[in-house]
Design a protein around this nucleic acid. Sequence first.
DNA 1: CTCTAAAGTAAGCATCGATTACATGCAGCG
DNA 2: CGCTGCATGTAATCGATGCTTACTTTAGAG
Lengths: 226, 226
Amino acid sequence: MPAAPKPRRKAPEPRPYHHGALRDAMIVAAVALVEEGGAESVTVREAARRAGVSSGAPFRHFASKAALMTAVAEEGMAKLRASIAGKLAACASEHPLVRLLAVGDGYFAWAIAHPTHYRVVGDRTQIDFWGSEALLRDNGWIRAEMLALFARAEKEKLLRPCDLRVIHLQCRSLAYGLARMLVDGHFREFDVSPKAAPAAMRGALRDYVLSLARDRAALGRVLDAA
Amino acid sequence: MPAAPKPRRKAPEPRPYHHGALRDAMIVAAVALVEEGGAESVTVREAARRAGVSSGAPFRHFASKAALMTAVAEEGMAKLRASIAGKLAACASEHPLVRLLAVGDGYFAWAIAHPTHYRVVGDRTQIDFWGSEALLRDNGWIRAEMLALFARAEKEKLLRPCDLRVIHLQCRSLAYGLARMLVDGHFREFDVSPKAAPAAMRGALRDYVLSLARDRAALGRVLDAA
DNA sequence: CTCTAAAGTAAGCATCGATTACATGCAGCG
DNA sequence: CGCTGCATGTAATCGATGCTTACTTTAGAG
């Protein structure tokens, strides 16, 4: 019966001339496209189609496709940070190296769950990483969290003799390398079945963290308990 | 005077109707484009332009742009392998862990010298990696070389107690992560100046290899000597 | 020498990112 | 209330891309 009432106000029926939240809708659509077919399948036009606007409209909100992809990366980085924060919050132990492994768990969990989105976040050549406040903030948070854990571990004499700067770079590279190998399709090269990849990644990081400990056996016991 | 002699045979003057080696010429042009502006700036048409043929000609030799990029990756993987082989040949020591570091040196050297090309080689989602004999062969060579060194190190009791499969994955991930962080633009995040990146990468890998040694001090002396 | 098939060309299709000229309508002001 | 300005939308268009098709050239096998 109410075929077409008065297009009075916020009636979300046909489509008000002005979308109202196109910027957000574009990001949602672009993220969906990324998840469906990877960054390469993202098209400004298709995202506009899904948002129900013409192909030129998005450029009122994004200077370029790269700007849209930067927003997609911001979205991803926030989720990545949230995933890490979640694992940290769920980590009962206060042992810095145990918590470091929790950071890795949160990092891998999101990368594994959203591989194509993770690729957008990781590739800083396609987005304006250094020009995005949100990316710098969330990435900086992750970085600071790691550095604080390393600093605490050192202060508490939990680390083997080492250069903090070196192991920070090492740790980041190992985590990035593991996640990146996964999303770049390298894991088929190892015997691990696709479903075993997460465990292999965690195992590699766990063993690495153990190698950082002054008292490997002690940390092993703590990790086994947790 | 000899404005236009007889277009008799192999006269490389205007352009013989048949190119003669279009496939190779396309790969050369595509590699050049990759080095100049990254994979994203590669265009079948532009490569064809540089090879001096029409835009449709390349498709007689490559089923798709992805097939051309796969050939570009093959070219890169061969160079990567050659770089590693060179460092191994130049390595005087027979110590497996010293030679493992030489593998890393060869790997990093090429990645640093050809970052955009390296990205093409590393990203197996954009090329037909598992369908390319050349890629499988050269990548397999690198892999086998590493595995042999690990096996020798273990047989010669040079390794700390560890699971070979775990440290193989670790080592690969660390190397891939370091190289990938470089070409993905992550190094600005660390204090290292751009020119210091190679040293930082080597330092991280060196420290990692040291952490694998049963007798860290002994390996340290060997490395310092070399 | 002929004749086929590999390897070129030119033209065209659908699509893309981006721009332009124009249309709409909300907000703020008289 | 009515006017108006500006953010936000549309439609049309541009040049470029990947890829295909129909046709042309030419090398080389028989």
